[in-house]
Simulated assay, not measured.
Amino acid sequence: MTEAELYTLYKGVYLPTVLHTAENLKYYEDFTFRPDDILIATYPKSGTTWMQEIVPLIMSGGDPASVETLPNWDRVPWLEENRAHILNLEERPSPRMLTTHYSFGMMPPSFSEVKPKVIYVTRNPKDVFTSAFHYYDITTFLVKPGLQSEFLRKFLDGEVIFGSWFDHVKSWLNAEDKKNIMYISYEELIMDLKDSVARIAKFLEKSLEAEVVEKIAERCLFKNMKQNKMSNYSLVPAEFMDQAKSEFLRKGIAGDWKNQLTEAEAEHFDAVYKDQMKDVTYKFIWDY
């Protein structure tokens, strides 16, 4: 099926229609943030599920029930997706934990008014592309990737869900007020998960004993999180996501793009990256 059949064009970017009804997009636009809300913001395939495991464990003081009793899409729901308006988020006690794939410029008015805490997670875009290539292939609500060369063109041109990776990342890096935003990368989580958990806890002003931090980090190792049925998307019916083809939580590594992209594709990607990010001063771990 095509983009016209499966996607809604909203504020210039594609959204999968089945997950983003007009009713819920309106709900999002009218959503009232609280100052103590915690928002996980990501471009898709950048570590969202991982952060939806880490943050509830931090806020609960390491209580495993925080990630074992609700699927991640209900425990830290996407505000722009259909379930948000039926979860009675207005009745949830503070601090609420929320998720979005939207760019900074797509945030609703109340976001700028109250300035909640935001954890913005980035990932090497070549790995984002690799993860997306496999993910698009197992879902029924996204346009099939087709030839890798064509999907790469679409990805670099922003003709994929939630638009351009470059525009998304730059929008959050250029946020007017950064004091309530924590920038962290997928690669940092891989390199030192314990330190990452400690830094996130400090940002969230949650005091944790060293042994609790260690316990959370152990729990959030990819191999352990992959076993959590509330996080591995095994609860999603096969007619929406065929994990017999490829697991949702696939490898959880950095650098898998080297197994995916040809040398010519990687060189082209690098050239586009350098052009698109030439004015960005923020230093990423993967910087070329």
Rank of each mutant, 00 (worst) to 15 (best):
35 P>K: 03
45 K>R: 12
39 L>P: 02
251 K>D: 09
148 Q>G: 08
215 K>M: 14
200 I>D: 05
263 E>C: 01
44 P>S: 00
11 K>S: 11
57 L>V: 02
245 K>Y: 12
79 L>E: 02
286 W>P: 09
201 A>Y: 06
44 P>C: 01
115 K>Q: 15
184 I>N: 03
70 L>C: 12
206 K>R: 14
224 N>W: 10
22 A>K: 15
88 N>T: 07
192 D>R: 10
88 N>P: 00
270 D>L: 13
228 N>L: 03
235 L>S: 14
235 L>H: 14
1 M>C: 11
117 K>Y: 04
186 Y>S: 05
273 Y>E: 06
255 G>Q: 07
7 Y>I: 03
247 E>N: 14
241 M>V: 07
81 E>L: 12
107 M>D: 01
90 E>Y: 02
251 K>H: 10
65 A>E: 13
204 L>D: 01
77 P>I: 00
36 D>C: 01
23 E>W: 07
74 D>Y: 15
265 E>Q: 03
175 A>E: 02
62 G>E: 10
122 T>S: 12
274 K>Q: 14
284 F>G: 07
133 F>Y: 15
147 L>I: 07
237 P>L: 06
30 D>Y: 10
252 G>F: 08
197 V>I: 04
174 N>H: 03
252 G>W: 10
260 Q>D: 11
201 A>S: 15
239 E>D: 14
48 T>M: 02
64 P>Q: 07
17 T>Y: 11
53 E>H: 12
10 Y>T: 05
242 D>Q: 00
126 K>N: 06
270 D>R: 12
238 A>H: 12
78 W>R: 13
132 A>T: 08
53 E>G: 13
45 K>N: 07
124 N>M: 06
65 A>D: 12
100 T>I: 00
